[in-house]
């Protein structure tokens, strides 16, 4: 899911950085500082999730959990994902510093979209697992499409790239859908107020 350095053109890099900056400012404004430890814990989870790999073909496929961050933090997932990606680039050499903006917007914007999409489903205990699954898998699907768009705007055809990235990420969509579903269902039972935090 991380795009490496030296691949994207300068306009895409600048565009990604600008969108991430805007998203991060909105996220910081919406962030309730009393919930900062909750945000930290979810950021740490996002940071470590990338170490869980599923080997598929030549590509690197690993857990992302951006859907979980989106559903629980709303816009605050932008600064959380940005910090997580920065530390992944520094400590794991995933992605890179120049592509940080593009990678952050590719993962955080789908998370925010899934947050708005699944918000009505979180109210009922019956629809909560569905909300979790849709957020978990939908965020990966949208991230794959955004990643393909970033690559297509640089040099290759969008449809071909999108097909490859979406197909390569199908296993992770299913896995993350179930993981997010179980986590959201569990939190909804034991600490439902955590799910309203992003609102």
């Amino acid at each position: 899911m991380h795009i490496s350095e030296g691949i994207l053109s300068a306009p895409i890099l600048l565009g990604g950085a600008s969108l991430t900056a805007v998203g991060t400012v909105i996220g910081l404004k919406k962030l309730d500082l009393d919930r900062i430890m909750e945000v930290s814990m979810l950021t740490a989870t996002f940071f470590v999730a990338s170490l869980i790999h599923v080997p598929i073909g030549p590509a690197s496929i690993h857990l992302v959990l951006n859907g979980l961050l989106g559903i629980m933090l709303g816009w605050a997932c932008f600064p959380a994902i940005l910090v997580g990606l920065l530390l992944q680039a520094v400590f794991f050499q995933y992605g890179g510093l120049t592509v940080l903006g593009v990678n952050a917007v590719n993962m955080a914007l789908p998370a925010v979209l899934c947050f708005y999409l699944t918000r009505p489903l979180l109210n009922s205990e019956k629809t909560r697992p569905l909300a979790g699954f849709v957020a978990g898998s939908g965020a990966i699907l949208l991230s794959a499409v955004f990643m393909a768009l970033s690559l297509a705007f640089t040099d290759s055809g969008f449809l071909a790239t999108a097909k490859i990235t979406v197909l390569a990420n199908i296993p992770i969509m299913v896995i993350e859908g179930f993981i997010t579903m179980f986590i959201v269902s569990f939190i909804g039972r034991v600490h439902p107020e955590l799910l309203w935090g992003g609102r």
Binding site: L33, S40, F47, V48, F91
Partner: peptide, 25 residues
Amino acid sequence: SPPLRNVVTGIISIVGLGALIKWSR
């Protein structure tokens, strides 16, 4: 593979940053 030291340092950085903001507040 990423050394365990890097994983632990990353987690401590994130949680430490949160704790510092909380403490400052």
